[in-house]
Design a protein around this nucleic acid. Structure first.
Length: 573
DNA sequence: GCCGTTTTCGGCCCGACTGTTTTCAGTCG
């Protein structure tokens, strides 16, 4: 059983317990266990066999026993019993924003309503408004939320690369509002999660209420969901929900920290603070005994007051970051300035848009020491892939450019297609003449896990392949990752000393954060490439850096953080 | 249900907004 299936079951249990009105801390325990497993580098199945379940944070005696039953029998009696207590479909009520466990339970119990369609009818004929603590206004709000939910369901979370420009547009529109300062995207956007559910923006203001008014009047705002004196939520032009929060200037440090999350990180932080006699909020830190609040202009100062090193936003996910910050043992995460080159770039020789020399100059402008030109192989006809003859011509052109261009070195290369049977789309003798060879899957993506795993490992075993590009082939919001035993791929890459790519292309971000974390743990070499098809796309690098940081990557883990003199040793080995 | 530099039992993050209430429950992040 896959970890993701286990996570789903634990989350379901938490939902059902909520519906029952169980102790909220019990439901939270299941949620916490689910989240731990979601971020786990290893298979739960393996941990069951080795009797190491209790090492998972948030898994105690009871949940460990349930997981063991689930893995060994494929079923969980407790889960089945729980489900039997509620009509099927009541879970969908819970998914509507504004309907929590209390409301869902009352609606299902009193009105015998369990689907969105039935709920809509019950609202329209006035039955919902008559329930205790409900009213006509609440009922109508729920009706609105159902509509929004249906719409959102079809749009889902959107890729980071689409959300960031939308946030930039809002920030731009708010520039120049009098008395507004420190305007910053926060939330999952600032943590560089691969997809974004809503945009969080935080700022500080002389008069927050006035700025809130300015915000809800922006042309980019389509619909205002709620609005108070320090906070507003709205649906913006692209359908994304945006939460905007304002505080006093001198609370910016705590406000930004609070708004950045993650939720679990903040909970962990506040629990720890409580043990120190401190109470944290977006306004600052209160010494509980003295009842005195201190404010912080920067996040650094906010963390320091708690005896913690600064924790970068990308790793604020409720893992071990607080414990390590306390001991001064956080890694020094890789940053953009560590990157010395880009080893996956397409030119106009295949489906790129610009000639090699222009790409090289653009890379030099970004401070790089080298790039690799890695156009497609012939098998990708649609991308004007190169055959042997054109590849030879291209190599000659690169040699010419290298002779006359200073300050940047161009490596020859190829993004060679890994065919369905695992062989490569170019003879070994030709690959041997190249500096960098990327192997990549572009076809037959529906293969089963065994076939796909063997296919990729066969490419890793080819002595001329240096890097596997976008290893799981996912396209965010469009195409799921291929079925592949990623642990086996990591093991092969480690054994043959091959690098796995972190594709910085914002629609890919592949490997993803949790894979990166695991690969790095196993000592697999990583490389952050943009897969740029035009100059401007060299700037995608920041998405790759953010993703690598989420996987706790340091410069030493990353091939293209090596200077020109060193990087070539990797493929000459 | 989990967990432990004051605890193996008694706690479990903190505050904004809304709508329904006569002081607060429910929901969200």
């Amino acid at each position: 059983m896959k970890n993701s299936e286990i996570v789903k079951i634990l989350e379901d249990i938490a939902d059902l317990l909520e519906l029952k009105g169980e102790n909220v801390f019990k439901t939270r325990a299941y949620q916490k266990a689910a989240r731990s497993i979601e971020f786990l580098g290893e298979d739960v199945e393996k941990l069951v066999k080795e009797e190491r379940l209790r090492e998972i944070p948030g898994v105690g005696e009871a949940i460990a026993k349930k997981l063991t039953e689930l893995i060994n029998t494929g079923h969980l009696a407790y889960y089945d019993r729980l489900r039997a207590e509620f009509p099927d479909g009541i879970g969908t009520l819970l998914e509507v924003p504004g309907i929590g466990p209390r409301t869902a339970f009352v609606i299902a119990k009193e009105l015998k309503v369990t689907t969105l369609e039935e709920l809509e009818r019950a609202i329209e004929d006035g039955r919902v408004a008559e329930l205790p603590r409900m009213g006509e206004k609440t009922a109508q709000n729920i009706l609105q939320q159902i509509k929004a939910y249906r719409k959102k369901k079809s749009e889902q979370r959107i890729p980071l690369g689409s959300a960031l420009p939308a946030a930039d547009a809002l920030l731009g529109a708010l520039q120049g509002v009098p008395g507004l300062k420190n305007l910053t995207p926060a939330g999952s956007l600032r943590r560089f999660r691969d997809t974004i559910g809503d945009i969080d923006i935080v700022g500080t203001a002389d008069d927050p209420e006035e700025v809130i008014q300015a915000f809800i009047r922006l042309p980019q705002v389509r619909e205002v969901l709620e609005k108070g004196s320090t906070k507003a939520s709205a649906i913006i032009f692209n359908g994304l929900q945006t939460d905007f929060r304002l505080l006093d200037h001198d609370s910016f440090g705590s406000a930004l920290q609070y708004s950045t999350g993650s939720k679990q990180h903040n909970i962990d932080l506040r629990k720890r603070a409580e043990r120190l006699g401190l109470s944290l909020s977006e306004y600052g830190i209160t010494e509980v005994a003295a009842g005195k609040m201190e404010k912080f202009a920067s996040e650094e100062a906010f963390y320091r007051r708690q005896g913690l090193d600064y924790i970068p936003p990308e790793i604020r996910e409720g893992q071990r970051e607080i414990e390590l910050a306390e001991k001064g043992l956080l890694p020094r995460l890789i940053q953009l300035s560590d990157i010395k080159g880009d080893l996956h770039i397409h030119s106009s020789w295949s489906d790129g848009q610009e000639p090699i020399e222009e790409l090289a100059i653009a890379a030099r402008e970004r401070g790089y020491e080298y790039i690799a030109i890695t156009d497609h192989s012939v098998g990708l006809g649609i991308a004007r892939g190169l055959n042997e003859e054109r590849l030879r011509q291209q190599i000659k052109e690169i040699e010419d450019i290298n002779r006359r261009l200073t300050g940047i070195h161009i490596f020859t290369g190829l993004e060679v297609d890994i065919k369905a049977n695992g062989t490569l789309d170019m003879p070994d003798a030709v690959l041997a003449g190249l500096d960098v060879v990327l192997g990549a899957v572009h076809s037959s993506m529906g293969q089963n896990e065994d076939q796909m795993t063997r296919r990729i490992i066969q490419a890793i075993e080819n002595p001329h392949v240096d890097i596997i590009a976008h290893p799981t082939c996912r396209i965010l919001g469009e195409r799921e990752a291929v079925a592949v035993n990623i642990e086996a791929v990591f093991a092969a890459a480690r054994a043959h000393n091959k690098a796995l790519e972190i594709s910085a292309m914002p629609t890919r971000l592949d490997l993803k954060d949790t894979h990166i974390f695991r690969a790095r743990e196993l000592g697999v070499k990583l490389v952050i490439n943009t897969d740029a098809h035009q100059r401007a796309q060299l700037d995608f690098m920041r998405f790759g850096i953010g993703t690598a940081r989420r996987g706790w990557c340091e410069a030493k883990d990353v091939l293209n953080a090596l200077p020109l003199e060193k990087v070539g040793e990797f493929w000459l080995k």
